[in-house]
Structure formats: structure tokens, C-alpha cells
């Protein structure tokens, strides 16, 4: 499904602010796999998602989705394969446009936009059914501007838009980080439901270790632009926050030591 081969990215190369954000990272996702991503600030989690989404070109490496090499495609062309939800609830929807207009725009993702009317009554019915499933009473507010919704409602709507035409890959960049704990929980529940129902291959960044353990079928931990831990199945299910933290300390220590070794040898 998703194949990432030896990608690297350095920001501000050859300046004092040089930052190697991704370093020779490889990752492969199975069809329908739901992967959670954790790591400290600056570990390269968001950089990894942006690399896949095509926010900027890579320095090295290849990204392949469903057999198609997308490495050289700009972000708006990759949107054909990828649904995205951002950390900022304001970024995923057009605030001055109605709920149904936002959804209609998302429905055309990856297809040609013609001079046909933006929304048909059949689509409106489809939107109503999808919104009803969210259980946020949005189905009666199709012609409400997205900007009038709360942060949680906007994230839920963005999730729906990102998943509705079955993208090959769903990218969630700490999409609950800006929400209060109760709303965050609700949005996560909706996320899990949408991912499972549509069998979506998903990469979800979270800063909450417990969420990373509770959701998804595979967990990867990043540090310094690399994947330092990759667990799935029983091993992931039975792990705890404490264990993850101690493994993180061990693994980053190990790396530190090997670096030292390199420097001294």
C-alpha cells in the first residue's frame, strides 16, 4: 500500500539553522493498517507526514502508494490518494463555505472539476447520512458555514471529508491536540470508527502515549528523524506507557552511545 524508501530531508541546509529532520527513513504499510506515531518534539513526526503529503520536495528517497511513485508530485496531485486532517481545526475546512459545499469539494478530490453544479440533491442526501453517523446533529445544518462550528465539530467534519472517497492513505497530524480532553476523546472515537468501517490505511500522529497504545494495530516511535521502535499485534496491545518510556530512554541512549563510539573511534 504505502512504501517509503530511504527518505531524507534537511531544512535550511548549509546554514547555522541546519536541521536534519528525516534521515534515511524507510517504512512500509500494509493495506488497511492503522499505525500510530509517537515521539518527542522535533523527532520528525510531522515532517514524515508532510513528506508523504508532498508539502515540499524530498532530498532523497522515494514514496510509493499502491504501486504509483508519487515522489515528484505536488501536494494537490497527491490529494488523489491521500486524505488529510491537520492539527489546526481551522485548516481543514473553508470557513466561509457551507458544510455541504465543503463536503462536495472533498467528494471531487482527485477528479476533474467541471462546470456541473457543485452539489446535487443525491449528494446532499449522501452527506446527510454520513453526518448523521457522526452524531453531532450536523445533518440538519448543511447550509451552515463551516466557520460557525466548534473546533471539535470542524475536526470531525474534516475527518469525514478526508475519508469519504476512500483514500488509499489517511494522514492525521495530531488532529486532536487542539481540542479539550472530552472533545478529543469523541473525535478519536469517530476516527477509529471511520478508519475501521472504511478499512483505511492510516498514519496517526499523537502526543498521547495511551492513545497510541489504545488505537491502531501498529505503533512506531520516532527520534531524530528515524524510526527507533516498531511494534504491532500482541506486543503493542500489551505494552504500557511506562514500558514505552523506558524503551524510549534505552533506545535513544543506545543511539547516543553509538554516536559517541563513532566519534571516538
Amino acid at each position: 500500500m504505502l512504501k517509503i524508501e530511504h527518505i531524507s530531508k534537511t531544512f535550511n541546509p548549509r546554514t547555522v539553522n541546519e536541521k536534519k529532520a528525516l534521515s534515511d527513513l524507510s517504512l512500509s504499510l500494509e493495506d488497511g493498517e492503522f499505525v500510530t506515531v509517537i515521539g518527542s518534539n522535533g523527532a520528525g513526526k510531522s515532517t514524515l507526514l508532510n513528506a508523504i503529503a508532498g508539502t515540499w520536495p524530498l532530498d532523497e528517497g522515494k514514496i510509493i502508494i499502491d504501486g504509483t511513485d508519487i515522489t515528484s508530485l505536488p501536494d494537490y496531485k497527491r490529494a488523489k490518494f491521500i486524505g488529510r486532517v491537520f492539527q489546526d481545526p481551522l485548516m481543514g475546512t473553508a470557513a466561509d463555505m457551507w458544510i455541504e459545499e465543503n463536503m462536495a469539494l472533498a467528494l471531487r478530490r482527485g477528479q476533474k472539476r467541471t462546470l456541473a453544479q457543485g452539489i446535487t440533491s443525491a449528494q446532499r442526501e449522501q452527506f446527510r447520512v454520513l453526518l448523521k453517523d457522526l452524531d453531532l446533529q450536523l445533518e440538519e445544518r448543511l447550509s451552515t458555514k463551516a466557520g460557525l462550528l466548534s473546533g471539535g465539530q470542524r475536526q470531525a467534519l474534516t475527518l469525514l471529508m478526508a475519508s469519504m472517497n476512500h483514500p488509499q492513505l489517511l494522514l492525521l497530524d495530531e488532529h486532536t491536540a487542539a481540542l479539550d480532553p472530552r472533545t478529543a476523546k469523541k473525535v478519536l472515537t469517530i476516527t477509529d470508527k471511520l478508519v475501521r468501517e472504511n478499512n483505511l490505511t492510516t498514519l496517526m500522529i499523537t502526543h498521547n502515549m495511551q492513545d497510541a497504545i489504545d488505537y491502531g494495530d501498529r505503533l512506531i516511535m520516532m527520534n531524530d528523524g528515524m524510526i527507533i521502535l516498531d511494534i504491532k499485534g500482541e506486543e503493542k496491545k500489551n505494552t504500557t506507557r511506562e514500558e514505552l518510556i523506558s524503551r524510549f530512554n534505552d533506545l535513544s541512549e543506545e543511539k547516543l552511545n553509538s554516536d559517541n563510539l563513532l566519534l571516538t573511534s
Binding site: A79, M91, G92, A94, D96, M97, E101, L105, R109, M161
Partner: peptide, 15 residues
């Protein structure tokens, strides 16, 4: 309209 309203959203939706 979406482009003028929210460019990040437009790009993410293939515009």
C-alpha cells in the same frame, strides 16, 4: 472560492 478561503484546505482536496 475554496482557494480564496483556505489554501491549505484547497490543496489538501486536490485543488
Amino acid at each position: 472560492r475554496a482557494t480564496g478561503n483556505n489554501q491549505a484546505m484547497a490543496r489538501a482536496n486536490g485543488i
